[in-house]
Amino acid sequence: MGFSDLPVRRRDATRLAAVAAAAVAGVSIARPAAADRRHRLRAQPDGVDALELAVAGLAGTARRAGGLRTPVVATTRFAALGVTWGRGDGRVRARWRRERNGWTEWRTLPRLAHGPDPDSDEAAAATSATDLVWTEPSDAVQLELTGDQRDPVLVLLRPRRRKGDGRVEQPAPVVTDVGAREVGSVPMPGLLFRKAWGPDPRLRNGRPSYNNRIRQVHVHHTVNSNDYARADVPGMIRAMYRYHTRNLGWSDLGYNFLVDRFGRLWEGRAGGPRRAVRGAHTLGFNHASVGVAAIGNLESGAVGKRMIRALVRVAAWKLDMYGGNPHRTIWIRSSGSDRFPYGAMVELPTIDGHRDTNQTACPGQHLYDALPAVRRRTARRIREFRAG
């Protein structure tokens, strides 16, 4: 007997149980409209439409030995998805229906491999989750969970363009190259501050924390499409910020900086770009580093010259402030990651990829292969400015 065959009273009781389960998980269930039975993403003040669904409360979810599978969940348009849960662990697979290309195959969603260091105050409020997965415009999804995840929640996001998003241009550096050479230091590159992408300050939780120094630059990619327009970028950053704060429980966006395919450099986490702000980008190794995310999928797409230039300029600026050498490796103590246990001493490149510290493919093979060139160019830039 299917759900639609149940008597009315039993059906109502089942729905009430689903709502109660969602309330326990702290999630507001958006009920599908009666006409088309779709769950609707709701517009948010930050310009990101969002929907959060308690997986256990979805009618028709089938429990199996070791996990569960949801029915097909029809929705209004979304562009990114993630799954969070309270306790436990396991595998999450998903398939989704793209508006242009139909259903994907079942795919394993990557387990979150970045976040606050386990021994930090920020980690106390963090939840377990998958990475945010960019899907293309889609309108249905189905999940399969294997493991003992408690209170899993499906998160769907759709960033929208806001007025002014298409008019954001890279500003000139505050100090010219000539002026910087006179004082013998690498200048801060032209930077788009947080105001340019417009985060909702109500989503932040807590104050920034700071490192004593910066010894490393960790390079990431965000694994979204590579054909985004200039006007899309602020909304994409707002969606990542919402997922990191509202859904993962972090105090702010995890990355310190982001670079896009047009060569623009964006301030990520608050606290002052000139300061050693502790991020939540490289689990176990945030305590002496800065995290820079390249916006795009650099596993499937090539790394453009403008993106490389932006990476070099921000890396040279931050490392020069603390006497770093991009050619060297350093020894650093792990504060606990999925690759190196708490207290382990690890030798790492000064500029490394996320995969060097965690079990992940990030920052994508193409960008990882470009890191030797990034190190060479960063070292040359530091050397040129120090020479005056």
Results as ranks from 00 to 15, higher is better:
166 G>I: 04
160 R>S: 03
122 E>D: 15
57 G>C: 11
68 L>H: 14
50 A>T: 01
40 R>T: 06
366 H>A: 09
217 V>R: 04
47 G>Q: 06
55 V>K: 14
243 Y>V: 00
307 M>Y: 10
152 P>S: 10
83 V>K: 01
207 R>K: 14
374 V>N: 06
160 R>A: 02
283 L>Q: 13
95 R>C: 05
138 S>I: 00
138 S>Y: 01
175 V>Q: 12
48 V>C: 01
219 V>G: 04
33 A>H: 10
356 D>T: 12
6 L>S: 12
208 P>T: 05
255 Y>A: 13
308 I>Q: 14
211 N>L: 07
137 P>W: 01
94 A>P: 02
179 G>K: 12
301 G>S: 15
180 A>Y: 02
176 T>F: 00
120 S>M: 12
99 E>I: 08
190 G>F: 04
112 L>M: 08
252 D>N: 05
133 V>Y: 03
245 T>R: 03
249 G>Y: 02
61 T>L: 14
215 R>K: 15
257 F>G: 13
299 E>K: 12
37 R>T: 09
239 A>S: 10
292 V>A: 06
306 R>Y: 07
185 S>H: 11
69 R>V: 15
12 D>F: 15
378 T>R: 13
43 A>T: 10
112 L>Y: 00
269 R>H: 07
326 P>C: 04
384 E>C: 00
226 N>G: 15
37 R>D: 07
315 A>K: 01
252 D>I: 01
91 R>Q: 12
190 G>V: 06
269 R>L: 08
243 Y>F: 05
122 E>M: 08
208 P>D: 07
282 T>C: 14
29 I>K: 08
137 P>R: 06
348 L>C: 05
269 R>Y: 03
324 G>T: 04
126 A>D: 05
117 D>N: 09
259 V>A: 15
217 V>A: 09
28 S>H: 10
326 P>E: 01
79 A>F: 01
36 D>L: 03
125 A>C: 06
25 A>H: 09
311 L>E: 07
119 D>N: 11
203 L>A: 02
171 P>H: 08
285 F>M: 07
259 V>H: 14
113 A>K: 09
82 G>T: 01
167 R>E: 15
344 A>P: 00
62 A>K: 15
108 T>H: 08
269 R>S: 13
265 L>F: 04
274 R>N: 13
234 P>N: 07
144 E>G: 11
266 W>S: 11
105 E>I: 00
188 M>E: 13
145 L>M: 08
265 L>R: 11
134 W>G: 00
179 G>L: 12
266 W>T: 09
64 R>G: 08
377 R>I: 00
17 A>T: 13
118 P>E: 03
289 S>W: 04
112 L>E: 05
159 P>M: 02
6 L>M: 13
227 D>L: 12
224 N>E: 08
231 A>I: 06
